[in-house]
Write a protein that binds this DNA or RNA. Structure first.
Length: 858
RNA sequence: GGGCAGGUGGCGGAACGGUAUACGCGUAGGUCUCAAAAACCUAUGGAGGCAACUCCUUGAGGGUUCAAAUCCCUCUCUGCCCACCA
């Protein structure tokens, strides 16, 4: 037997594939297109983690499979190379981030290439390359021109360690604290002037185009019906839901409550006595509510601690000092305290201040409490304790009146007790002329009655993109004293990121200290001006990279409209579930924007056949590989598996097969070094099969129907499993076939060839070696046609009929496939074993499931 | 507190109304060998029995059904996500 020298063989094929550019995606191909997108990695200094190749192998299998099925596949790789970790690492080792990034990419590329992934390397991109970020800057300018990039003062999330602003999406919860997604330091709130992208302008379409979801379909609905119900997006249900939740749309009304204070009473008296016309406009507190129907039950108002009416004491609050102390305390609360105290609703009443319920005209108290958020709605609420659990808790604690105004049953013989009332719809009670009206209708009638406005409110806020750090895309803007903010003319792009001696963060952008960079002329008036020293959030870089792959070397445009439209939308995207609200939402926004601006047109050969405003049609998440100890892999736990060592010891094909065999693709599994051995044995046996069997190899098909049936069943199974990403069962099916092949006295060469084709996407190096060197073919396997199964050959001639008596399996018998119920019954009832159970009794009922079982009840 | 996913041998998992434990790992015994490794063969959920066989078993309990790991209800545990959004 020839030893399988994986090192030599894997290297040989990788070089040939690369040199001959066999995986080049042809823009002009006549074949139907398939765009398969790989999450381009952030090239960290640590290099590849065993988790990376799991997603990559799955995509590579799928890409190779699609090629064999006759598609022209666009499948490429690139580097999301800007960003904090590289910069922080560079600071640590005292190097330039540019050098560090270059070295990291080189290392990543070396590792990735050792796995033999079938990328079109001519399309490799790098976000830190001026040829790429020139177009990121171009994109920013287009957004600016449309008023979608703007500067505003806002409270931002500030990471004190990284000394930069973070987007809301980049702030995560850990142990009850708001921490930086990257470095896990606690985030503080800071008021700063910032660049924002107006994603909120696209919010309706971002919801709408996710589709209606499949919630209305019952479980029996076909997969196709489900996909159609979602519009054209085939995404995991949970991902769609999370994005919708993040956008957080709610419909309600803005209602105004007039404020009465000691001071306004005095004004009123003064007005009366002097008979002056009303020149002082009354003060109002505006609230947002989704339940305007419950207005008659609003028994008090609550302001958030951040509310501007209590910022200075213009209302003349009598206990202002106490209020201030409360606000200060609320501000200092950590996320953890907020969480644990969520049930314990604290608050202070504003003394000397009352509000008028516009429906009842009653005076109601006004409170400040930190259960009301300053950042949502108007920062103030009307509290309806009977119909809101939080208000109920607060009212109970502070002894405020509770008035029920919606009754689930009407006419109401008995209304349910209060704590059952909360959210339900029903009919109005105790609400003046609205009594008896359906609450849903009353929402808008009552809003109209008190002069309120309908309002749609979202949780999502505009995307903050300013970063006060060095290693990113310079924002292509110029500040001119005369002309204001002026974009850099497009002919002057890119604005190059200068090499700085000292690029460390100092709380202000490092670029600000480079006079050479900052000082410039205003493109409008020609006067002295300054460049914007901030850099862009790296999520801007990655929000359009999939478009660049379609035309990566274009130096006139970010991409050619026809090329982009030919390849887009992405047909299949595998991505970690952690990107659900960040990258995916941003990418959808940018695609819609570019579509609106006419840079993208109808999709080319895609299945959608028409317009696309969605970048990613089919989306799946890859499950995390965890350490052998069941813990997440991390350096500190010492449970990290290094792919370099694995590749050295067992080679790429074995790692690929093992990672696909571990379990369901979208679920996480612990790493098992012993398990790798199983994959290795499997491939060794595939290899050995020929050497051992070359005596047995037979040019002609044998008449072994059983073997032929298994072969065709395996073709069917593997084909379907790749389509559905059930790689573990696909491999198991191939193992079963291999077990059987080993038992054959005469193994037809044709069968072996079919098997090698099935194996090719999983273990491409070994398959290619066998195909060329043993089976003596000149073509590459991915140019071969994917095997098709013959439905006729799959049909069983016989099957095992299971015999159940009174619901228990008691016997079984081999029978002809076409056996009728009458025949089966006769045969079964004649069996001794069955007779022993029946003891002469007559069966009451017989259930026959063709091809499976017969169930006798007596 | 809410949402989602899930709990099947010693382990990863398969089956998703129709013979539970496919496939792989591990373990035990065997073949080969002076020996060991590798490779190959056999066995391998639990209890009982010399045996043929019988009973039990998919987190716990209940229900539907001729038949439930699978469908329904209650509980429980684990993982992930969200978390006062009016």
């Amino acid at each position: 037997m020839i030893k399988y020298d994986f090192k030599k063989i894997e290297k040989k094929w990788q070089e040939r594939w690369l040199d001959e550019k066999v995986f080049r995606a042809d823009d002009k191909s006549k074949k139907p297109k398939f765009y398969q997108l790989e999450t381009f990695p952030y090239p960290s200094a640590e290099g590849l983690h065993v988790g990376h190749p799991k997603g990559y192998t799955a995509e590579d299998i799928h890409a190779r499979f699609m090629r064999m099925r006759g598609y022209e596949v666009l499948y490429a790789m690139g580097w999301d190379a800007f960003g904090l970790p590289t910069e922080n690492y560079a600071i640590k080792v005292g190097k330039n981030p540019k050098e560090v990034a270059k070295a990291n990419i080189k290392n990543f590329k070396r590792q990735v290439q050792m796995f033999g992934f079938s990328y079109d390397w001519d399309r490799e991109i790098n976000t830190s390359d001026p040829e790429y970020y020139k177009w990121t800057q171009w994109l920013f300018i287009q957004l600016f021109k449309k008023g979608l990039a703007y500067r505003a003062k806002a409270k931002v999330n500030w990471c004190p360690k990284d000394m930069t602003v973070l987007a809301n999406e980049q702030v995560v919860q850990q142990n009850g604290k708001n921490v930086c997604e990257r470095c896990k330091s606690e985030v503080v709130q800071k008021e700063m002037e910032q660049w924002f992208l107006k994603i909120t302008d696209y919010v309706e379409r971002l919801i709408e185009d996710l589709g209606p979801g499949t919630a209305t379909l019952d479980a029996t609905a076909s997969k196709k019906a489900k996909v159609e119900a979602r519009g054209s997006l085939d995404w995991p249900e949970a991902t769609i839901k999370r994005q919708k939740d993040w956008i957080g749309k709610s419909e309600g009304a803005l209602l105004k409550f007039e404020v009465r204070t000691d001071r306004s009473d005095r004004t009123l008296q003064a007005k009366r006595s002097s008979k002056q016309s009303d020149r002082t406009t009354p003060t109002f507190i505006e609230v947002f509510t989704t339940r305007p129907d419950t207005l008659f039950g609003a028994t008090y108002l609550v302001l958030s601690p951040e509310h501007k009416l209590i910022g200075n004491n213009e209302l003349g609050i009598r206990n202002y000092e106490e209020i201030q102390r409360y606000i200060e305390k609320a501000k200092r609360k950590t996320g953890l305290e907020r969480m644990t105290e969520a049930k314990d609703k604290t608050g202070v009443e504003l003394e000397g201040v009352k509000a008028i319920n516009p429906a009842t005209k009653e005076e109601i108290p006004v409170w400040v409490a930190d259960y009301v958020l300053g950042s949502y709605g108007t920062g103030a609420i009307m509290a309806v304790p009977a119909h809101d659990e939080r208000d109920f808790d607060f009212a109970t604690k502070h002894n405020l009146p509770i008035r029920m105004v919606v009754c689930p049953h009407y006419p109401a013989p008995t209304c349910p007790v209060l704590d059952e009332a909360y959210l339900g719809e029903g009919h109005m009670v105790d609400s003046g002329k609205f009594d008896g009206m359906e609450s849903e209708k009353a929402k808008w009638e009552i809003t109209k009655f008190v002069g309120g406005k309908r309002k749609v409110q979202y949780k999502i806020r505009d995307w903050s993109v300013s970063r006060q750090r060095y290693w990113g895309v310079p924002i292509p803007m110029i500040h001119c004293e005369k002309c204001g903010i002026v974009p850099v003319p497009e002919r002057d792009l890119p604005v190059l990121l200068p090499d700085l001696e000292d690029y460390r963060p100092k709380g202000k952008p490092p670029l600000a200290s480079s006079e050479k960079f900052i000082k410039t002329k205003c493109p409008k008036c020609g006067g002295e001006a300054e460049r914007e020293p901030e850099t862009l959030d790296t999520f801007v870089d990655s929000a359009w990279y999939y478009l660049r792959y379609t035309d990566p070397h274009n130096d006139k445009m970010p991409f050619d409209k026809l090329r982009a439209s030919h390849w887009m939308p992405v047909d299949f995207y595998v991505i970690g579930a952690e990107h659900t609200v960040l990258h995916l939402l941003y990418s959808r926004f940018i695609t819609k924007f570019l579509h609106d601006e006419g840079y993208l047109s109808s999709g080319g050969g895609s299945a959608t056949g028409g317009k696309f405003q969605e970048p990613f049609l089919k989306l799946r998440h890859v499950g995390l590989i965890i350490g052998a100890d069941g813990q997440k892999m991390s350096k500190s736990r010492g449970n990290v598996v290094n792919p370099d060592e694995l590749l050295e010891v067992v080679g790429a094909d074995v790692v690929r097969v093992y990672e696909m065999f571990m379990g369901p693709f979208d679920q996480g599994q612990p790493w098992d070094t012993q398990g790798v051995l199983g994959a290795e044995r499997f491939l060794q046996r595939v290899w050995k099969l020929y050497s051992d069997a070359n005596i047995r190899m037979h040019a002609n098909d044998t008449n072994n129907a059983n073997f032929g049936r298994l072969l065709h069943k395996t073709i069917k199974k593997v084909t379907e499993d790749i389509e559905t990403l059930n790689f573990n069962t696909a491999i198991s099916a191939m193992m079963i076939l291999l077990n059987e092949m080993e038992k054959q006295d005469k193994l037809p060469v044709k069968s072996y060839e079919l098997f090698v084709k099935l194996l090719a996407p999983f273990a491409p190096h070994m398959a290619e070696e066998i195909w060329h060197e043993i089976l003596d073919h000149k073509t590459y396997l991915h140019e071969e046609k994917w095997p098709e199964y013959d439905p006729k050959l799959i049909k069983e001639e016989k099957f095992t009929l299971v015999i159940q008596i009174n619901g228990r399996v008691r016997d079984s018998v081999e029978v002809e496939a076409g056996i009728s119920q009458a025949e089966a019954e006769k045969l079964v009832l004649a069996r001794e074993k069955v007779r022993a159970y029946l003891k002469g009794a007559k069966p009451k009922k017989v259930i026959y499931v063709p091809g499976r079982l017969i169930s006798i009840i007596f």
